[in-house]
């Protein structure tokens, strides 16, 4: 049989493209969780990012404004979460859930007038190089968000391991009481992390509505926020494993689509469930080291921080 390298290249590119929003949202949430905050509102922040990005694009026709607008919207909605959990000391889990419900509702309302509108063309890089066999479609002809997503986890890895700011984030996630004793402003650090997570979820949403399927569809994040949350946990808070997990999820999703199309005699429901099952399975296997899990898990994750007087 003749293997069509170009076809394989296109499939790989499709896999990568489908994992971009997962990488962005999960890596952003990873920073949030490393600081000890559990924000279950990722799905809501993504969908808000998606509608904002699309709305800004339609009204300004500037990709730059659209992208930053989406990130800004993500930050604003994450600040609601931050204010509630850090200043008013509400519990993280219900607040995050409420944020998701809120985000889905608000986005549907804001998006009323955008339903069915065709999206705008987005500039891509090295467009003419994508004719090169195999590596062409993989490496070239993608949007700026695409390239950013694949550098970003390495960036975050370096940040957490090698910089003092990263160390402070980990310290705050380890024990907010000790951090306070050491003169670290726990609440400020957590606010910043929450905002960062919001920005990244917003960017993930922008990718969906501007690049991946350039239009506004209600509820278009379709559970990606939840998968991102699961990725963070099963990747044991390691950004590089998040990258692996996101790619894996993407590839199995694409693969099972092709299997469905090829008429493989496996129930469709099972095929659709495959990406979830296998991703979790693989991540659990590659993270099977009790010592490492214990070292990477933020001790104060999800705990409300009551400052002693």
């Amino acid at each position: 049989m003749n293997i069509d390298l170009n076809f394989i290249g296109i499939i790989i590119a499709a896999v990568m493209a489908s994992s971009v929003p997962l990488i962005l949202a999960a890596t952003g949430e990873l920073i949030v969780e490393r600081s000890g905050v559990l924000n279950l509102g990722v799905e809501g922040m993504i969908i808000i990012g998606a509608i904002s990005g699309f709305a800004f694009m339609m009204s300004t026709e500037s990709i730059v404004i659209a992208i930053f607008g989406a990130m800004f919207a993500g930050i604003i909605i994450s600040l609601i979460f931050g204010f509630l959990t850090q200043t008013l000391l509400t519990l993280h889990v219900p607040t995050g859930l409420a944020l998701t419900i809120f985000g889905i509702g608000v986005s549907a309302m804001l998006g009323k007038n955008f339903v069915g509108l065709p999206g705008k063309e987005i500039p891509v890089f090295f467009e003419n190089l994508d004719k090169i066999t195999f590596i062409g479609p993989i490496l070239f002809g993608h949007s700026i968000i695409f390239y950013f997503a694949f550098v970003f986890p390495f960036f975050v890895y370096y940040f957490l391991k090698k910089t003092k700011m990263g160390l402070i984030v980990r310290a705050v996630g380890d024990s907010h009481h000790v951090a306070t004793d050491q003169g670290i402003n726990v609440i400020l650090v957590r606010y910043l992390c929450i905002m960062f997570g919001g920005a990244m979820s917003g960017l993930a949403g922008a990718y969906l509505s501007l690049v991946y399927t350039p239009q506004w569809i209600e509820n278009m994040s379709s559970g990606r926020g939840w998968i991102a949350l699961a990725l963070v946990v099963f990747a044991t808070w390691n950004p590089l494993k998040v990258l692996v997990g996101a790619l894996l999820f993407g590839s199995i999703s694409i693969l099972q689509l092709h299997m469905q199309a090829a008429g493989v005699r496996i129930p469709v429901q099972f095929l659709s469930a495959l990406p979830y099952l296998l991703t979790i399975l693989v991540l659990v296997v590659i993270s099977r080291d009790d010592r490492k899990i214990k070292l990477n898990t933020p001790n104060s994750l999800g705990k409300t921080f009551y400052k002693e007087n």
Partner: peptide
């Protein structure tokens, strides 16, 4: 003890 359990000894000392 007022130490970060999951950080290394050096990281604990640098922070301060």
């Amino acid at each position: 003890f007022s130490l970060f359990e999951t950080l290394s000894v050096l990281e604990n000392l640098i922070l301060d």
